[in-house]
Design a protein around this nucleic acid. Structure first.
Lengths: 258, 258
DNA sequence: TTCAATCTAATGGTCTAACATTTACACGGT
DNA sequence: ACCGTGTAAATGTTAGACCATTAGATTGAA
């Protein structure tokens, strides 16, 4: 006997969202191209502006377009990145669905492999960048934010070198998560968390082209960092999540888009 | 000299989104609770219904609530899951930002660790489930969809057992990605991709409590599966992505929500 | 009583039409 | 050449109406 599926009216905005998304995925728009205006699209689709608007907002939330206001404003197609994945992960962490322990177990699993792969893919140009990043860590007079950024740059570069964009995305998410936790929860310099020179053995091994040593050095580093991070988590638990939320709201009031 | 940040008016709907999201993350709503109706909220926030509506739709897109229509309809708070992460990954794959090779490299890295952890966390009840899943693979007369589901159940159960929800989420995403590719691109039985008995060594090792053997068996399995999947990718490249997109649209017309 | 058909009201979905705000750019005066 | 200023095009927001969907109350017949 046939198994009919229940019929359910899809939302108009979802249908439009699909069509636009597929057009973008099929490369009918290059990154930087502008979609037609809401009013134009509402004529083309023969629906109200509201429906089009909701579809475009969904595209924005999914990271496909960036919306600008004003003359020459509109929905500009973006290069699909992994940014919003990291944000989604952050939400999961904040809702206590992921612990720092779980997060770090994954990191200890992944980052050594990244270091290993990176070692196999290096070339003089990359080595140069890696060394520059390492030497530029903890610049004097930097703000907390800049300091953390400089201290994690080595990780990002290795992830870029490793040649696997999925791994790169994972590392990005993991680091961003760690970083946000530190930055938001503990607003004093992270020197105790990320002491200078911690990346030395990793950089040395990569530059020397020794994949196993690089992986091992990264593993050691990740474990040390983990121990430090556990202390941060303790603080986090004591303070609760209120301070984080307040900052989140303040940033939005300041005009930052989601 | 002070470094003033440019002031930018945030969207009203984004401010509301933040407030609702924070309320949910702060557990002011249990899963299953209903937010007030759009009309009520628009009075509380002193904004138009449209603004509230956009905020709620954003919550839905982010996976925080499920919207139901009709009497007793509204936005119901959901248990935040990793579902939408997998969907976002799928988009990245379709936009050729991730290759099957990269995807599988990650899988070969992660799943053995999952198998290892699972072995350390088993108990009679889990073992029973695992064995049931294994024996229930490839039921006769099943549809393609059911067949694939049965063949991947062992992986999902292991991911559940392993005790790390981040790893579990990753495995879910990876498998879902593989599955979607196979299911959508190659609409004939996957027996050649997933021959019966392939999970035997893994299940045996886990039940025997041998973590190293379990990891090794999983690694071997993943590599075999990978080789098979490469063939699928070839087909995929030949057929292009058009067939996939058509199915996507058809499903939506059938009423499935995004 | 029981059950099924019908009605009802609450809620999300959609539309229209207007006005507000933002912003790149052209135009003009100095 | 420069600096204001206006302008137009785009998104942002509002109000109010109506449509579609749905659970539950009401009704009525067996």
């Amino acid at each position: 006997m046939r198994n009919f599926k229940p019929v359910k009216q899809p939302r108009i905005s979802d249908v439009i969202f699909q069509q636009l998304k597929n057009a973008i995925l099929a490369n009918e728009f290059k990154a930087g191209d502008k979609l037609s205006s809401e009013r134009d699209l509402s004529e083309q689709f023969q629906v109200s502006r509201v429906a089009v608007r909701e579809a475009i907002r969904a595209l924005e939330n999914a990271g496909f377009v960036a919306i600008r206001q004003g003359l020459n404003g509109g929905a500009y197609v973006t290069d699909l990145t992994f940014e919003h994945l990291a944000n989604a992960c952050l939400d999961l962490f904040l809702s206590n669905k992921i612990s720092i322990h779980e997060l770090h177990h994954v990191r200890i699993l992944i980052e050594p492999e990244v270091a290993r792969l990176a070692t196999l893919h290096t070339n003089p140009e990359w080595n140069e960048r890696l060394l520059m990043a390492y030497k530029g860590e903890h610049p004097p007079g930097a703000s907390l934010s800049e300091d953390i950024a400089s201290a994690t740059r080595v990780h990002f570069i290795l992830a870029e070198i490793c040649g696997n964009r999925f791994l790169e995305a994972l590392v990005n998410s993991l680091l961003k998560l760690s970083r946000k936790i530190i930055e938001e929860i503990r607003p004093n310099p992270p020197s105790s968390i990320h002491p200078p020179g911690l990346h030395g053995p990793i950089v040395d091994a990569v530059l020397a082209g020794d994949a196993d040593a690089a992986a091992e050095a990264m593993k050691t580093h990740a474990k040390i960092f983990y121990d430090n991070l556990v202390r941060v988590e303790k603080d986090y638990r004591e303070h609760g999540s209120a301070s984080y939320r307040l900052k989140d709201e303040a940033r939005l009031q300041g005009g930052e888009r989601l």
